[in-house]
Simulated scan of single mutants.
Amino acid sequence: MSGGGVDLSMLQQLMADAGRDLFAGVFDEPTPEVGAVPERVRGFRVRVDLMYAKPPIWRRLVLPGDLMLDELHDVLQVAMGWQDGHLHKFGVGADRRTRAYFVTRFDLSEGDDGLVEDGVRLDQVVSGKGDRLFYDYDFGDGWEHVLVVEDVLDDPP
């Protein structure tokens, strides 16, 4: 302070710090919940639906539980007829606004952080009938998919 007045730069810094503390965590992305690696590999019959498509566009796949999410991306590209020319992400959580997403190697190279998809197996994010996994592809066109577990198989395919 000088001459009994308020130091404007100090006041601005205090306000900036208060704002940072006030909004700390508000814009942080939630971290996906991942289960432990199961002792035994099972198979999953899943239905993959392209959301909001009329008429419905879907596929039925039988997948091994030890399939890594980056490998599942490759499977979905072939199954849905995509050509792997766009970015993608996997997410968990029913509510779209609070869904937790995995990051890709590309995301890491862009400075993002988070749980990387190539370190997560399918059977760590789904385990029973009705479980869901979301797959977004081509963020410009917004192709959203939902994978729903229809059946859990004793053995992987």
Rank of each mutant, 00 (worst) to 15 (best):
residue 119 G to W: 08
residue 66 D to S: 13
residue 93 G to K: 01
residue 45 R to Q: 12
residue 113 D to C: 11
residue 31 T to I: 08
residue 13 Q to Y: 11
residue 40 R to N: 13
residue 37 V to C: 13
residue 45 R to N: 05
residue 103 V to L: 03
residue 70 D to A: 05
residue 152 V to W: 10
residue 60 R to H: 11
residue 101 Y to F: 06
residue 146 V to L: 10
residue 83 Q to Y: 11
residue 15 M to R: 15
residue 117 E to N: 02
residue 9 S to M: 12
residue 128 G to V: 02
residue 11 L to H: 08
residue 149 V to M: 04
residue 70 D to Q: 06
residue 67 L to S: 09
residue 31 T to R: 10
residue 34 V to K: 03
residue 42 R to P: 06
residue 85 G to H: 04
residue 25 G to P: 10
residue 10 M to K: 12
residue 96 R to K: 09
residue 39 E to G: 14
residue 62 V to Y: 08
residue 100 A to F: 00
residue 25 G to E: 08
residue 29 E to D: 11
residue 119 G to N: 06
residue 105 R to V: 13
residue 36 A to S: 12
residue 139 F to V: 03
residue 89 K to R: 11
residue 55 P to T: 09
residue 131 D to Y: 07
residue 74 D to V: 07
residue 20 R to N: 12
residue 8 L to N: 13
residue 125 V to D: 03
residue 112 D to Q: 11
residue 151 D to E: 15
residue 14 L to H: 08
residue 65 G to P: 05
residue 153 L to W: 06
residue 28 D to C: 04
residue 8 L to K: 13
residue 26 V to R: 15
residue 133 L to M: 02
residue 124 Q to F: 02
residue 129 K to F: 15
residue 71 E to C: 08
residue 52 Y to I: 15
residue 102 F to S: 00
residue 80 M to S: 14
residue 64 P to H: 03
residue 126 V to E: 02
residue 19 G to C: 14
residue 25 G to A: 02
residue 93 G to F: 00
residue 151 D to H: 12
residue 136 D to E: 03
residue 9 S to C: 12
residue 90 F to E: 02
residue 146 V to R: 11
residue 29 E to Q: 14
residue 131 D to N: 10
residue 76 L to A: 07
residue 142 G to W: 01
residue 153 L to M: 09
residue 43 G to Y: 05
residue 83 Q to C: 12
residue 13 Q to K: 11
residue 94 A to G: 13
residue 9 S to R: 14
residue 8 L to G: 13
residue 68 M to L: 10
residue 155 D to P: 04
residue 89 K to E: 04
residue 25 G to Y: 10
residue 42 R to A: 14
residue 113 D to Y: 09
residue 113 D to S: 12
residue 34 V to W: 02
residue 77 Q to K: 08
residue 101 Y to H: 02
residue 84 D to C: 09
residue 101 Y to P: 00
residue 24 A to V: 14
residue 10 M to H: 14
residue 111 G to V: 07
residue 155 D to G: 07
residue 151 D to R: 11
residue 32 P to T: 09
residue 103 V to K: 05
residue 16 A to L: 12
residue 142 G to K: 00
residue 133 L to D: 00
residue 65 G to M: 08
residue 148 V to W: 06
residue 117 E to Q: 00
residue 134 F to Q: 02
residue 18 A to I: 15
residue 100 A to I: 01
residue 135 Y to S: 03
